[in-house]
Structure formats: structure tokens, C-alpha cells
Design a protein around this nucleic acid. Structure first.
Lengths: 244, 244
DNA sequence: AAGTGGTCTAGACCACTCT
DNA sequence: GAGTGGTCTAGACCACTTG
């Protein structure tokens, strides 16, 4: 039987906003793990001593923010992290259309984070990270080259064992092996030219124009947990935005 | 005194969704022109014979879709079109930071729409369009080269008169001179190389790598009213997307 | 002070899912 | 059938803007 949790509103804040903030804290604190159901609206409304409509409004807010997912007739669930966060959505690789994308880890080492990476990950300068080089292919054709930095004690489980067992998608591996759920990602797009090593990996001439997607990925609590730089043939780049 | 407009719901459709659709039609039909206020919620609820909360829900939908804008204490307004639809958000042009962007029309002519343009604008092949070449500058530096196609009887007012009087922003000119309000735009980003003419205009070497933004702009009713192709130095391109 | 949108309540009923 | 979220109502009160 849940204890009562009367809600207190800061001046100028609506009750449903305060409720949403409170629920967010409980979720981030792990009271209901990702994928599990939270109590029914009726239950929560009674627990906080508010009307049903007000609690619904609060949950609507969290749903908009992507923190929870409502399913009519079944319940309300804490969202699992992003599964693919599909980097390939930025590119169009021809003919090979139906071939399944594959990924391979080229290198893995523990290293001190470079200054920019430490800043991105919110770590102190000189802290340790795990650096991965990863090659993604469509059919037999290598198409994307990635350099990935992960903060280190957190991702220690990925520093050992055979990367070939991780599967083709990285984020599910983060979740299963390190308990890290990627919940939001910010991608920053630019154009540049391939360095010698990347060009070799992608079977393109050195200096070939490339698109560079720099990603910072965040977990439920808003911590940055991944800093990644992805390179692919600029001529295959394609992206569509709608503005209103 | 407004007549009653009882709302009828299609099976499987909620009442507020039907209301939103009805209101959308009235707005698109021009019953309340862009920028003007629509009647108060109480009024509309009574007119359609529904509870206040239901009407509010319908208006919330339209607000989400960007069709209307609600202002606490003042009223609810039909949105003006996009003002800038800022193409420059895709680029970062250095040092000249504070200089105001300027634009200049290099060429203007009536021509039959090319096949792709006709398709984009939803016109029959061979119909007439207005073709503009436009150069945008920051400070004294030309930075973007644009080719713009507009469907023709609609934009006839722009086919005459001095383009220098249009001002630096195109969409306000569309609104004032042609009564066309751009409400949504879809930008498609790709990568390529500058042709000789464009390179000359941008003061870059021919074949220089460039980012190409292809835009289709739509009015309130969802008609495509503009087809545009913008080119700029690939090295200045920069864009950030957040996914959840 | 009057008019607007924003919040909150309390309760009824509907639609969906699972067992 | 029991439990969940989704819709709708009717009404009270609050917060903001304008004359």
C-alpha cells in the first residue's frame, strides 16, 4: 500500500508540471526500470491526492518528452532506450538496398579521453575512456567508419570479451552489458575530407569528400554516455527536414 | 449571432478530432485570414454544441500542427506564414557574424517548368513558372546561390516591378504581393559540386564541394507553392538534429 | 472590469487488452 | 469480466491582457 505523496508546487508552476517533475525523478531514480509498467493513473492520482485529469496531464507531458509510452488498454511503460538510433538514415547506399547492414569492430583500447571528448562526456580532463573503431557495411561494401568514445568505469564490461558477440547494434549491447539506456541523441552534421586511414577502410581515395556526423548520446538522467564521430561518402549523404 | 454547427463524427474518430478538422477547413477556406483572431473558445464550444474542454482539445491539436497560435489573455490567432524560413541556419559563415544578411535577385524570367519542378509543384508538364536566381550575402561576401521556381499565374505580381523593392526576405513578399502564406517547408539536404556559373557567383573555384538544400514550400491548404535549390560552400555547412 | 486562455476537479462512459 | 488508458462533460477558479 503506497504512502501518500502530497505534491507541492513552486510559485508560478502548475500542479501537473510539478507532478511530471516528481514522476520523472522517480523514473530516473530507477523506481520503475526501463520496459516496466508504472502504476495505473487512478493509483497515481490517489497517491498524490490530485484529480485523475491532472495526473493524466502530467503523464502526457512525460510521454511527449519520450520518457514513457502509453498503450491503450495495457498500461503506461518506461521507455526502453533507442534501439538503432539509425545512423544509416543520413545516407543512401544504392543497389544493395535489401542487404542487411553489418558492423565490425576494428580496434578497441583504453585511453585517456582527448580534451574535446572529455568535455562532451562531462568528464574531467585525463580521465579514462574506451575507444572503439567500427566499420559498418551494407552487403559487402564498407560504408561508414566510426570512432566511438565511452566513459570508463561505466563501460568496463565492453572493454573485455569478444566484440563479435555484441551483435550489429550497439545500443542494445550498452543496455544488456552495462545497464546503460540511450534515451536521446544529438547529431551534428558537417562535411569534410577523408584521412588516409579512414579512406582505406572505406575503400575510397584519400581526401575524398565525406559527411561527418558527430553524435552525443544521453541516458535517462541526461548524462552524456557516448561521443561518436561517423564518416561516410559525402555523395551518399541525404537528409530531409521539415520546418513549421 | 452564429448559426449552430453540430459536429458529426466519423466512426472511430474522436469528437475533438472531427472538430479540429472542421476548424481547419474554415481556416483554410479563409473565414479568418492569417494574423486575425478566431472566436473565443466559449463561443466556438457553444456554436458546435460541445463542452469547453472538448473544444480546447481540438484547438490544442491545431496549435500543435502550427495552424493557430494561442496567447494567454489575448486570444487565439491564425498563424502568419513562416517569415524567414532561415536557409542560413544550415550554414556557419565565420567572422562576419554580426553583419546583416542581404539578398539580390540576379535574374528573373518566365519559363516553362522543367519536369522535376512541375512534379514538385503539382503542376502539369509544360505549365509556366517564374524562375529566379538569387544571391545571398553576409557582409560583402556572397555565400548562397539560389534557383527558385514559382508557379505562374499565382505569382504574377512578382513577374513585374523592381525586385530590389521586395526586401531581403522572400516569404513576406509572397504574402504582401501575392497573398501566399508559406506555412510549411521541407528541406532535402545533399552534397555535390559547384557548376561554373554558380562558382563564379559565389567567388569559389568551379567544382568546389557544395551543400545543396532542395526545398518545397507549402501554403495553408497544403499546396506546394515554391521549389527551390540552394547551394553553399560545403565547408560552411553545419546542422544539428536531436532524436528521441 | 471585462474578456481571454490556462488549470483543476469529479464523475460518467467508452475502447482496448488480457485472462 | 476486470483492469487499463481515452473521451467527454459541467462547472469553478486562476492568470494574463486590454480598455
Amino acid at each position: 500500500m503506497p504512502s501518500l505523496r502530497p505534491i507541492d508546487t513552486e510559485p508560478g508552476q502548475s500542479r501537473y508540471a510539478a507532478l511530471a517533475a516528481a514522476m520523472r525523478e522517480r523514473i530516473v531514480a530507477g523506481e520503475w526500470p526501463p520496459g516496466s509498467a508504472i502504476p495505473a493513473e487512478q493509483m497515481l492520482a490517489a497517491e498524490h491526492g490530485v484529480a485523475l485529469g491532472t495526473m493524466r496531464r502530467a503523464l502526457d507531458l512525460l510521454a511527449e518528452q519520450g520518457l514513457i509510452e502509453r498503450v491503450h488498454g495495457r498500461g503506461t511503460f518506461v521507455r526502453q532506450g533507442l534501439s538503432g538510433a539509425p545512423m544509416l538514415r543520413f545516407f543512401r547506399f544504392g543497389a544493395v538496398g535489401n542487404a542487411a547492414p553489418r558492423s565490425r569492430i576494428l580496434a578497441r583500447e583504453r585511453l585517456a579521453l582527448p580534451a574535446e571528448g572529455a568535455r562532451a562526456l562531462g568528464c574531467g580532463p585525463g580521465e579514462m575512456g574506451l575507444r572503439l573503431l567500427r566499420l559498418r557495411s551494407v552487403g559487402e561494401q564498407p560504408v561508414l567508419h566510426e570512432e566511438i568514445w565511452l566513459p570508463l568505469p561505466l563501460f568496463e564490461p565492453l572493454a573485455e570479451g569478444d566484440p563479435a558477440e555484441w551483435g550489429d547494434l550497439l545500443y542494445p549491447a550498452f543496455a544488456q552489458r552495462c545497464g546503460v539506456f540511450v534515451h536521446r541523441a544529438v547529431d551534428s552534421i558537417g562535411f569534410g575530407n577523408l584521412g588516409a586511414a579512414q579512406a582505406r577502410a572505406l575503400e575510397l581515395p584519400a581526401g575524398h569528400p565525406c559527411a561527418r556526423v558527430q553524435r552525443q548520446a544521453y541516458d535517462l538522467a541526461g548524462r552524456c554516455v557516448e561521443w561518436r564521430s561517423t564518416l561516410g561518402d559525402a555523395n551518399a549523404f541525404h537528409y530531409t527536414v521539415s520546418i513549421t
